[in-house]
Nucleic acid binder design. Structure first.
Length: 783
DNA sequence: ATGCCTCGAGTTCA
DNA sequence: CTCGAGGCAT
């Protein structure tokens, strides 16, 4: 390479770096884009002639070439922490007070470094001898993903640090985000190209950074601000956080210009309000501000609580809300008859989506908020998902707006609406005579987690019920092709759909065929699915499984009296009563008979679980009868004097006294036994008890590898669906729960895990990433 | 009695 | 996801 060429190469690189720095770090572009592009093109051409001169820190190396297979894991030597959250002023005062308590020698207010909390992705950048060698996402804080190739394409991230005093090894922590303007440009372009758009800048930034092809990342304009450091070797650093961030800026790293040094909690709150005021004008989205104890030596002394530092806290802004007008308040009738008021809203964009409906939960809640038709209300997406009405803007209430009057009768069937004294939810009393409840019951029956009838969507359920083809779920199983076609024809007629063409007829036939096949395929099912599908109140997937596992067969479940049901784990008085009541209805029994007659077949019935024996001892069952004053202790006493429950049914007050029970217990029991229905219950319960104990297999099944373990799934697994993961875990004997607590044995965290992961860390619960989970499934622990 | 912890049920939008 | 309510440990 000739010297002039080499000089030109260096000059080009320097100039481009200057422009990058001015544009991304100083936010003050010095040349038009076209000029910048020209420089880049020249550099690329020159480098193409001299491939041996291409260095990793050359600006051209930002745009990576080849797509990755996946991301490698990176272990963070110093974990990337999460922060505790403050939501109210009081939380900030508490935070400051705790810091003061641990820094007894701190005279006067503590100085804090305050900065906006950007809504982006936390990353770590490793510089060795000033050159970027590795970039990684935060991941779970301990282990992240290696995204160096993608981060290289982020122009705001210097590939080489400038200036003096750069440590030999320096890990920089900061946030990758997308500016509002860049986000809008990206979405506008996507819209033009017919691609899908991103809901918000955070999603766009996350999606862009996780691109396997760095060339895609390169086309998205991502930004970066440094806000801290990780590992450092061989380097001297300032002794305050403010000084540290200033130094990072000196070395060419972009840092947030809105930073401030404030004193005491009052200073923090002042900053919080100042930023809130300018928030709409900021070029990026934020979800709060962060305060850090400024003096680094003090940070060290304060240390950590589990995974969060005691020297920093994130002060969050309330979730973004938007104002809109209530056009109407409707009520919906759920499967259990629950009446839910829903606000119909003028469409409004909030939290990344357009909202037109928002739940008002129940009458009490609605009355408390006093929402009226015509009101201007504030709407937010609770937990960033489900829209809810936060409150009414009182000043904007139109004159003459009347308080909303809850209906007294079901809008669908006209039955009375009842609300038990101590419950918040009002219910239609119509039961299955109410078409709304019937539809919901059938839809529930057909749902994927229930009988899984493919092809039976909401519209068809509505039509089948409205036109009288289906009254109960059993009716689904005797309809034939012709019935479905006839129904469709009548539905079309009713809706005024144009006369059928030959082609339409063909499509209808195909639809009916598919539905018939779907219904047929659902006939073979499991006991748990069928029990869940029946829609018994208080019996969800989990309870249905408990019933199936412990009792083993439908025959037993359908005639189990409440006390026997109460012997099962997680089944108490309310649940047992609900189940027993369901099966006490002749109509429900008839539906089950018809289901079986029409070919519904339970494939997994088995004898009752052996472990049931210890829960169905005489004493245990006595306690489960729910006789007033008959405590567990007294039940045990009584049981010792009895050979069977039958015997008890024949006992009067005298005989009971003779067993040594205290007078009032004996009296209470005698009174209870007077009722015929109670004696009948006693006998039924005892008969089933004896039968179950006799039917029980003696050999205990081998212990499953994960028996007794509770697992929680969170985030998105790339290798399998949540359903599959759940099934695999359950096959190993584990229980899959929905929320993390101290009882959770471990959490499986996929990508973009949220609050559950945070909670797991807070509680110190073991977290498995996807690889570890795969390993566990491949080789379960023995025993 | 009290306070977790889980489950059930209802919910929105793309 | 969030709420209420049921179950159960303390």
């Amino acid at each position: 390479m000739s010297d002039p060429d080499f000089e030109r190469l260096q000059a080009l690189r320097d100039e481009i770096r200057q422009h990058d720095h001015r544009y991304y770090v100083l936010d003050a572009p010095s040349v038009p884009d076209a000029e910048y592009d020209r420089l880049m093109r020249e550099l690329r051409a020159l480098e193409a002639e001299h491939p041996d001169r291409v260095t990793p820190d050359s600006p051209t190396q930002r745009v990576g070439g080849k797509a990755l297979e996946g991301f490698a894991e990176v272990h963070h030597a110093l974990p990337m922490l999460s922060l505790d959250n403050a939501f109210e002023d009081l939380d900030v005062f508490d935070f400051d007070r705790r810091a003061h308590e641990r820094l007894a020698d701190a005279a006067g207010p503590i100085a804090y470094s305050a900065e906006p909390k950007l809504d982006g992705l936390a990353i770590s950048l490793r510089y060795e001898d000033g050159v970027l060698v590795r970039g990684a996402t935060r991941g779970d804080g301990t282990t992240g993903e290696e995204v160096t190739a993608n981060l290289r394409t982020v122009a705001a991230i210097p590939l080489r640090l400038r200036g003096a005093g750069v440590p030999r090894v320096l890990e920089v922590r900061g946030e990758v985000f997308m500016r509002k303007a860049d986000f809008e440009r990206l979405n506008a372009r996507a819209l033009e190209a017919g691609d899908r758009t991103f809901a918000n800048p955070r999603n766009a930034a996350a999606g862009s950074l996780r691109q396997l092809d760095p060339a895609v990342t390169a086309q998205r304009r991502l930004s970066f601000y440094a806000y801290g450091i990780g590992e450092v070797e061989d380097g001297a650093l300032p002794d305050t956080h403010t000084g540290l961030i200033g130094r990072l800026g000196d070395w060419g790293l972009p840092v947030c210009p809105e930073r401030a040094r404030v004193e005491g909690p009052e200073g923090c709150l002042g900053y919080y309000r100042r930023i809130d005021a300018v928030r709409p004008g900021l070029p990026y989205d934020i979800d709060g501000v962060v305060y850090k104890v400024d003096r680094l030596a003090w940070q060290t002394r304060l240390g950590f609580v589990s995974r969060a530092p005691r020297w920093a806290i994130a002060h969050k802004y309330p979730a973004q809300e938007a104002l809109t007008v209530v056009e109407a308040i409707d009520v919906q009738v759920g499967r259990t008859g629950a009446i839910t008021p829903v606000a119909r809203l003028a469409p409004v964009f909030v939290g990344g989506v357009t909202v037109t409906n928002a739940t008002l939960h129940n009458f009490i809640e609605l009355a408390r908020k006093d929402v009226r038709v015509g009101d201007t209300v504030s709407v937010r997406r609770a937990g960033d998902v489900i829209p809810e009405v936060v409150g009414v803007v009182a000043e904007r209430r139109p004159a003459g707006a009347e308080p909303w009057v809850p209906p007294t009768h079901c809008p669908v069937c006209g039955s009375h609406i009842e609300r038990p004294e101590d419950e918040a939810i009002a219910r239609c009393s119509g039961g299955l005579t109410c078409p709304a409840q019937r539809k919901e019951a059938i839809r529930h029956f057909a749902a994927r987690r229930a009988m899984d009838i493919e092809g039976l969507g909401e519209r068809y359920v509505d039509n089948l019920v409205e036109l009288g083809y289906v009254d109960s779920v059993a009716d689904l199983y005797h309809l034939g092709l012709d019935d479905f076609l006839e129904m469709k024809r009548r539905a079309d007629e009713r809706d005024g759909v144009t006369p059928e063409t030959v082609k339409a007829g063909k499509i209808a036939t195909q639809w009916a065929g598919n539905l018939l096949a779907g219904i047929g395929a659902s006939r073979d099912t499991t006991l748990a699915r069928l029990l869940f599908a029946l829609g018994i109140r208080h019996v969800g997937e989990s309870t249905a499984r408990t019933l199936a596992d412990w009792l083993g067969s439908l025959a037993v479940v359908r005639r189990a009296p409440a006390p026997v049901l109460r012997a099962l784990p997680d089944v108490g008085g309310a649940v047992a009563a609900s189940i027993a009541e369901f099966f006490a209805q002749p109509g429900n029994q008839a539906v089950i008979d018809r289901l079986l007659e029409r070919g519904v077949r339970i494939t997994d019935q088995h004898p009752p679980a052996p472990k049931l024996a210890e829960r169905l001892g005489l004493a245990e069952l006595l306690a489960l009868l729910a006789v007033p004053k008959l405590t567990e202790l007294r039940s045990r006493q009584l049981a010792e004097r009895l050979a069977s429950l039958d015997e008890l049914a024949g006992m009067g007050l005298e005989a009971l006294r003779a067993t040594g029970l205290p007078e009032e217990v004996a009296a209470s029991l005698a009174a209870w036994l007077e009722a015929d229905e109670h004696r009948a219950l006693l006998q039924r319960a005892d008969a089933l008890r004896v039968e179950l104990l006799a039917a029980m297999p003696h050999a205990a099944a081998a212990e499953a590898p994960l028996a007794g373990r509770t697992v929680v799934l969170t985030g998105t697994l790339s290798g399998m669906t949540r359903e599959t993961a759940k099934a695999r875990l359950e096959a190993l004997g584990a229980r899959v729960a929905g929320s993390v607590s101290t009882k959770t044995d471990f959490v499986v965290a996929g990508a973009d895990a949220g609050s559950k992961l945070a909670k797991a860390r807070e509680l110190g619960v073991t977290v498995l990433d996807e690889d570890a989970f795969a390993a566990l499934l491949a080789e379960p622990p023995r025993g």
